[in-house]
């Protein structure tokens, strides 16, 4: 061991100097740590650079095949979808879906990963509200998602010559921003359920399955049976996809999608609150049953 002796413990230091600054530093430190760890696994390249282009290709070629030579049968699609640009149409849907999917896996497994690594408890031993750490992690995932979204836009520009940011751009941005709280609310809810049940695959598959069928990621909702519309309207992604398409592809105005925006706004309040409640429930339960130490 080294020679120098450490300063004796002091009772004054034992009093945390909590301030707005130190709280913000906590938030950023958690985000930074998550980000560093993320980039130290080489698979990140696939996750945010390769995947966004690869994933929609299957749908795009299916559409191309069904569209017939020179897109002969596309007018049926155009009548329902309001555009014949099926590539942009599909990509807007798949990007939303991938964003949600990424968030569900990233945030949903965040606590579980920490739990399995053994670091969850060493974080929870620190004098910091546990929800704050969860938010810090979400912030890191949010920045990954932003990079993902931006790369997607650039890649489609380069690969397909398709511009995704067009039409009513302010509306497009507003829809994306308004969707964010819902997606992260669902993410935190997921994270809580995942450590509660110590199993997540089934739930993630269920949720993204529901979303991919009900929210019309590659087709207009009009093709769905009526009862499925009923389900779709309780999923925020439905509106997010519909309105990004409206903004970018049909140059819709704010007024035209106002009812949808109101609903997205409501989800943006309700889902994060539900997320926090689920988290609080899981934390309390963990302290009672000790379930955090088991994996």
């Amino acid at each position: 061991m080294g020679q120098s002796t450490l300063t004796a413990p002091s009772d004054t230091l034992a009093r945390p100097r909590v301030s707005a600054g130190s709280t913000l530093r906590v938030l950023l430190a958690v985000a930074r740590k998550e980000w560093i760890i993320f980039t130290r696994y080489p698979t990140w390249v696939i996750a945010i650079i390769v995947w966004p282009v690869i994933f929609p290709l299957g749908y795009i070629f299916t559409a191309k095949a069904l569209g017939g030579p020179n897109g002969a049968s596309l007018h049926a699609f155009e009548r329902l979808a309001g555009t014949s640009d099926y590539i942009s149409y599909i990509v807007m849907g798949t990007v939303m879906w991938m964003w949600l999917n990424m968030t569900l896996w990233d945030i949903g497994f965040h606590l579980r990963e920490e739990q399995m690594r053994g670091t969850l408890e060493s974080n929870w031993l620190c004098p910091v509200p546990r929800l704050l750490m969860m938010m810090g992690a979400s912030l890191a995932k949010l920045s990954t998602s932003f990079i993902f979204l931006i790369l997607t836009v650039i890649e489609f520009r380069l690969v397909f010559g398709v511009s995704l940011v067009r039409g009513n751009v302010p509306l497009l941005l507003a829809v994306v921003l308004l969707t964010m709280p819902s997606i992260y609310g669902i993410g935190v809810m997921f994270a809580s359920l995942v450590i509660r049940f110590r199993e997540a695959n089934a739930m993630v598959f269920l949720v993204r399955g529901l979303v991919s069928v009900f929210c019309g990621i590659t087709y207009p909702l009009a093709v769905l049976p009526v009862w499925m519309h009923g389900v779709a309207q309780f999923i925020p992604i439905t509106y997010a996809i519909r309105d990004t398409r409206a903004a970018a592809l049909s140059n819709a105005s704010f007024a035209q999608v106002a009812p949808d925006l109101a609903k997205l706004g409501a989800f943006a309040v309700v889902l994060p609150v539900l997320g926090c409640l689920a988290f609080a429930y899981t934390e309390r339960r963990a302290r009672r049953t000790g379930s955090l130490a088991q994996y």
């Binding site: 909590v18 301030s19 130190s22 930074r32 740590k33 560093i36 620190c126």
Partner: peptide, 15 residues
Amino acid sequence: LTGRENLEYFATLYH
């Protein structure tokens, strides 16, 4: 993380 990064991270969590 490196040893130092670990300690820097946790130091922030102790304000």
